[in-house]
Amino acid sequence: MAKRFENKTIIVTGGASGIGAACAHLLAKEGANVVVADLNQKHADKTVAEISQAGGNAAAFAVDVGDPKAVESMVQFAIDRFGGLYGAVNNAGIGGPALPIGDYEIEDWHKVLNVDLHSVFYCMKYELAAMEKFGGGSIVNMSSILGTNGFSTAPAYVASKHAVIGMTKSAALEYSKRGIRINAVGPGFIRTPLLDENMEQDDIDALAELHPVGRLGKPEEVAALTAFLLAEESSFVTGSYHLVDGAYSAQ
């Protein structure tokens, strides 16, 4: 059976852990040349080693997605290493402090917006130019259920994720006739190592109960939808926002 991404190069930012790592593993399994781009070089190297051991093809690239020059270098690395660029999963992000707006530090506000919003613009700016040069492709921007819902004590994160959806729609309109599709994915609360490391079990259980299905999502479930949106089988899907949230947003 033919693999969906045979010999196609795809960048995954935040690709060393959680949702990003799940995407990187699945895309490589489906034949992609994956650039695992992450702030943490050691973790990116580990993910690449795991992909290689499973028979996939990947390369690590250390990047601060909040730095446009570094993002430009990331895209050039993908082209130099694998000879082109077909797709991207713009997934890197941070949560920020849990505080109401009146107590939120201005420095923290700018930091979250830079990583969660501005970086998506930087990534698309350079990815789109490369994809157009190499004949088109597909981008998935990782938003959140908080891209359409509010959440107390997360003003910068919520604002960023709302804006990512709007930017995705605008970009899709601009590039639809240039052979490039752009969509956004909105995960619910996902069980990742970062969640386990930073939250007590009682708090994790409380998060799970916010979802009508009664559990947290799995990174692999987000990766499955992301791969579909990147693949040719979704060729009529662009400019849209897709939930993986256990009915959280249906309430």
Rank of each mutant, 00 (worst) to 15 (best):
V63M: 12
A130C: 15
G95M: 15
M199L: 14
G102K: 06
A130L: 10
D245A: 07
G186K: 05
V48K: 00
S17C: 08
Q251K: 14
A92W: 04
V71N: 09
R191D: 15
N114Y: 05
A32G: 02
N91M: 03
F134C: 09
F189W: 13
S152L: 09
A250E: 05
G95W: 09
K161Y: 06
N141Y: 04
R4C: 01
L229T: 02
A98E: 14
S119I: 00
V71C: 13
I165D: 00
E127P: 07
S176P: 00
A154M: 14
E50A: 12
Y86T: 01
L216F: 07
I180Y: 12
V36D: 02
P97F: 04
L194T: 10
A32V: 00
H43W: 05
A58D: 02
A59E: 11
V71I: 10
S138I: 02
V36C: 05
L85D: 06
E233C: 06
R191T: 08
E6Y: 03
M142S: 06
G84D: 03
P193I: 07
E127A: 10
F228N: 02
G150V: 12
C123I: 03
T13C: 14
E220D: 13
G147N: 04
N149H: 15
H43Q: 15
A16H: 02
A163D: 08
E50F: 01
Q41I: 01
I182W: 07
M199I: 04
C123S: 15
V36F: 04
W109L: 12
L27E: 00
N40A: 09
F228M: 10
L229H: 05
G147I: 12
D116I: 08
V12P: 07
E107Y: 03
Y104P: 13
T148R: 13
G136M: 08
L243A: 03
F82M: 01
A250D: 02
D202L: 06
I101S: 09
G66F: 13
G150A: 15
I101W: 09
D67R: 11
F61E: 03
I106Y: 12
A154C: 10
D38H: 07
I139W: 06
E6S: 07
H211G: 07
K177G: 05
V36S: 05
Q76H: 12
I139M: 08
D38I: 04
A59N: 04
T13K: 08
I94K: 03
V65P: 14
Y248V: 06
E233N: 06
S160A: 15
H162Y: 15
A21H: 03
G166A: 13
G31E: 05
E209S: 15
L27C: 03
L230N: 01
F228W: 13
I11W: 00
D245T: 07
V65M: 11
N33L: 02
S17L: 12
A208H: 11
S52K: 13
E197I: 03
T148L: 14
P212C: 13
F134M: 10
A24H: 01
C123H: 07
L210D: 11
Q76M: 11
Q53W: 02
A223R: 01
A88Y: 04
L146D: 08
E233M: 06
H118M: 10
P100A: 03
T226K: 01
I145T: 08
D103P: 13
G137D: 12
Y157A: 09
F77W: 11
G239Y: 12
I165S: 00
P187K: 02
S160I: 04
A172M: 12
G214F: 10
S249A: 11
V12Q: 07
A28Q: 03
A49H: 08
R215P: 09
